[in-house]
Amino acid sequence: MSTLNPTAERFKAIALGTVPPAIGLGLFILVWALVSASTPTIPTPGATFVSAVELFSDPFYNKGPNDMGIGWNILASLERVAIGFGLAALIGIPLGFIIGRFRFFNDMLAPIISLLRPVSPLAWLPIGLLVLQKAEPAAIWVIFISSIWPMIINTAVGVTRVPQDYMNVARVLNLSEWKIVTRILLPATLPYVMTGVRLAIGVAWLVIVAAEMLTGGIGIGFWIWDEWNNLDVAHIIIAIFVVGIIGLLLEVLLTQLAKRFDYDAR
């Protein structure tokens, strides 16, 4: 059938893997160029690129709290996400376990969760500002509350989906509740937990930009707002790309991590 030799085969595979995305990207830039040609306030792709090179030539300068490099802003946002998300994992995953394992807690907490989960994360910001008095912890609070739901829910679902066979093994062996949790529920649920974690980090990264726009200080969200006030549209577009790329990286990282815990896929 195919007369291609192995090298040519590989070349073909690489081409098939790179050409379509390249075309997509090219079209995107073309549309962008057309839009910027008709709307003078939108900078061209070329101008944006030049601006980006300049911006990233010194990402970590520090000229006082109101003028820091984009690198510091990104790190500040990542730190907030890490803290809020970490706290949510610390509370959400065990809570999910309890809800999944004990009917009573499920029945007790299910109505509250169903009620609070659909609330827009930013609706929690005033409460955070009110209770915590400061912008910084309030932003973390918003991350916490928005990323906790996927972790609670996925963990709880995972626990209820543990195959009855495994539970029968636990019963025949007379495992203690502690051993049931550590030796059976935890490993059996881990793929579900990882799904929750992955969804949660996506939400957290989504929300941080909006939260920081409202709270101010330092962070990629506030940086965008700041550049809007400076009317530096190129910087705003760069920030959009930065947010997108970091979100993508977080997603890829966690997908890779999740794969390591998936026993069926190994």
Binding site: D165, Y166, N168, V169, R171, V172, L173, N174, R183, I184, P187, A188, Y263, D264
Partner: peptide, 27 residues
Amino acid sequence: GPGPDRAVVFQNHSLLPWLTCTGNVLL
């Protein structure tokens, strides 16, 4: 209730996939 004095060999083996063969027996 069940107990280890009556060991069960399940129809579908029911090994825990995250433990090695030794790990499964050791548990």
